[in-house]
Design a binder for these strands. Structure first.
Length: 219
DNA sequence: AAATAATGCAACCGCAGAGAC
DNA sequence: GGTCTCTGCGGTTGCATTATT
């Protein structure tokens, strides 16, 4: 199989425009698939895998190039929280984006961003651990907690009443999932964190809590 | 202007799952 | 049930470009 693609004969490295043209016309003639036969049929000196990747990531119609919009960025962050490194699943929710692109974008931009956010949150947590939380914070957290409860309750109700027929998630697994992902509000509902712990995470994640509920049918 | 370091992204690699035989 | 082949996925590498010294 792959091993058949002898390293000596197979061309590697960046694709040239003329190679793209050949690949494009091959797919137009024979359709997607049968990548293993491509070097015989098209004359391209590329391996099947390489052709498949080139087509999928760059030549396929409706590929969106250029920077990510803030909406896309936000969705990637939220989906990554939810799914982890399941790049193809995440990319599936971003029309025109490929798993490779999403993965690269995460590794080069968002990973750093999220790490620095987490660092800030940890610093804040250190500061708030031993001091009494201000009245204002208490109010904010209280509001956030209520909002989160509402979101969860709504999701649970919709699942139970069959309003979300496409969801395969039950009340209990959803709660379990919430805990599993370690969301502040998830813990807040199921087994409340210490007040200061909750306060450090709730604002970053509150926005996501609504999105999480929106993503409910995907699970 | 040249050298070096950092960054971003295209492409490759190894592995696993699915289907055909 | 075992083997072979194809396909897709996630992790990693290599290189071109850009920034910094």
């Amino acid at each position: 199989m792959e091993k058949r693609e002898g390293k000596s004969q197979v061309k590697r490295g960046l694709w040239k425009p003329e190679e793209d043209m050949i690949l494009r016309s091959y797919v137009e003639t024979y359709g997607e698939g049968n990548w293993a036969d491509i070097s015989q049929r098209s004359g391209l000196k590329r391996g099947g895998k390489s052709c498949r990747l080139r087509w999928k990531n760059y030549l396929r119609p409706n590929i969106k190039r250029g920077g990510m919009s803030p909406e896309e960025e936000d969705l990637i962050i939220r989906m990554h929280k939810l799914l982890g490194n399941r790049w193809s699943l995440i990319a599936g929710r971003l029309p025109g984006r490929t798993d490779n692109e999403v993965k690269n974008y995460w590794n080069t931009h968002l990973n750093k961003k999220c790490e620095s956010r987490k660092r800030k949150a940890d610093e804040l947590k250190g500061k708030t651990q031993d001091i009494d939380t201000s009245t204002k914070d208490k109010q904010c957290v209280s509001q956030s907690l209520m909002a989160s409860t509402e979101v969860i309750d709504r999701g649970v109700e919709e699942a139970n009443t069959g309003k979300r027929e496409d969801s395969i998630v039950t009340t209990s697994t959803w709660m379990e999932g919430t805990n599993g992902f370690g969301y502040g509000y998830g813990y807040g509902i199921a087994s409340p964190l210490a007040f200061s712990d909750y306060a450090t995470t709730v604002f970053d994640d509150l926005q996501s809590s609504f999105a999480f509920a929106d993503l409910f049918p995907l699970l």
